[in-house]
Design a binder for these strands. Structure first.
Lengths: 204, 204
DNA sequence: ACCTGAACACCGTTCAAGT
DNA sequence: ACCTGAACACCGTTCAAGT
C-alpha cells in the first residue's frame, strides 16, 4: 500500500560519483562508496543505473557538458586567433581542475557507454566554429582536429606525468599554441593572398 | 632437498601478459589468466612480481622499449623534415598495431609503476634529435613536445573513438603533420634568415 | 515503486605446507 | 627455491522479501 519513497535521485548519485572521482580516481567510484555517500545501500543504485558502467558513463557525460559550457562563450571573440587561444587555455584549465574527470572523458569506453553524440557535438562546436573562421570551411574539421589532438595530447601527458625531461611545461604549451595559431593563420593567408581593406577593391 | 624447479620465467610471464592485453584489454590481464597461460597457479606469480601493478608495469616497459626501437632508425634520414614525418607515421602505426599496449603507455599510473626514466629517454630520443635538427637546440624540447602531444592526442582519440564528426581521419593526420612540419621548418627559417649556399658568403 | 539483507561470482593476495 | 591448495578481503551484481 505505501510504496517506498525515493531516498535519492539520478542527479544526486551522479554528483556523488563526480566527487568520489575527483577525490580518489576511478577506482574510488565503487557502488558501495557511491551508495554510502547518497545514503542508500548499493543494490538500490541498480534501480537507476543498469550497472557501474552506466553510472560511470553518466558521470562522464556530466563532465563533458560542463566542459562544453565553458568553451562556448569563448567563440564570441571577434578575433578567431584570440578565440582559439582562449579555447586552448580553458581546455587546459578544465583538465587541471578536474584531472580524473578529464581522464574519463578520453577513456576507451565500450561503444554503449560513450557520451551521446549530441553532447559530443556540443563540446566540439566552439573549436570547430573558431577553426572555420580561421582557415575557412574546407579545412575547418582538419584544423580543429589538429588543435584538439595537440591540446588533448598535451594535457593528457601532463596529467599522467609523461613530461619527464625537465623544461618549462607551461612554456611548451604556450609555444605549441603559438606555432599552431601562426600556422593556421598563415594557412588562411595562403588562400586569401591579401587582406581586403574597407576601401579597397576586391582582387579580380 | 630437491627445491622445485622454475616452471616459468619473468619474460615468459610478461609475454603472456602482452598477448592477453592485446587480445582482451587490460581487464583480461588477470593474475589467473596470466598464470594459466604460462602453466602455473596464480600465487606463483607473486614470486616474480610484487603484485598485479608490477606485472602491468613490466608489460608497459616492454612495449615502450619496443616503440623506442622502432623509432630509432628513422633518425638516420638526412632530411630532418622527412625524419619527422617518418617518426609520426611509425608512432601511429605502432598504436594501430598494439592499441591496448599503447593505451597502457600513456595511462595514469602510480609513480612507483612508471617505466624507468632511462627507457623513457630512449623512446623520446629519436624525436628530440630530429626536432633539434629542425628548429635548433634552443627550441628542440618545446618542438618535440608539440609533435608528441599532437601525435599522441591524435592516435589516442582515434583509438578511443573520439573522432565522431565524420571526415577522413587519415587525411586529418596528414594535414596535421604537414602543418607542423611546415611551421617548424619556418621556425628555423626565422632564426636563419636565409639558407647559406655552398659558394655564398655568410650573412654579416 | 523503491529499498534492503543475504547470497553469489570473481579476482587479488596471503600463507602454511609441500617438493 | 619455487610451487600449490585453501582461505580471506573486496567488489559488482542478483534476488526474494519488506514497506
Amino acid at each position: 500500500m505505501s510504496p517506498a519513497r525515493a531516498r535519492t535521485s539520478h542527479d544526486q548519485i551522479v554528483a556523488a560519483g563526480r566527487e568520489l572521482l575527483e577525490a580518489g580516481g576511478l577506482d574510488a567510484v565503487s557502488m558501495l562508496a557511491v551508495a554510502e555517500r547518497v545514503g542508500v545501500r548499493a543494490p538500490s543504485l541498480y534501480k537507476r543505473f543498469a550497472d557501474r558502467g552506466a553510472l560511470i558513463a553518466a558521470i562522464g557525460a556530466a563532465a563533458l557538458e560542463d566542459l562544453g559550457r565553458r568553451l562556448l562563450p569563448l567563440t564570441q571573440d571577434p578575433d578567431p586567433a584570440a578565440g582559439l587561444r582562449g579555447i586552448a587555455a580553458a581546455f587546459r584549465a578544465f583538465a587541471h581542475r578536474n584531472p580524473h574527470a578529464y581522464e574519463l572523458l578520453f577513456m576507451n569506453l565500450p561503444p554503449g557507454s560513450r557520451p551521446p553524440a549530441e553532447l559530443n557535438a556540443l563540446a566540439s562546436a566552439p573549436l570547430l566554429q573558431v577553426a572555420q573562421r580561421l582557415v575557412g570551411s574546407e579545412r575547418a574539421l582538419e584544423a580543429a582536429r589538429l588543435v584538439t589532438a595537440f591540446a588533448h595530447g598535451f594535457v593528457s601527458m601532463e596529467i599522467t606525468g609523461a613530461f619527464r625531461l625537465g623544461g618549462d611545461v607551461d612554456e611548451a604549451y604556450r609555444y605549441g599554441v603559438d606555432v599552431l595559431v601562426d600556422a593556421l593563420t598563415a594557412a588562411r593567408a595562403d588562400r586569401l593572398p591579401r587582406t581586403i581593406e574597407p576601401n579597397e577593391a576586391p582582387p579580380p
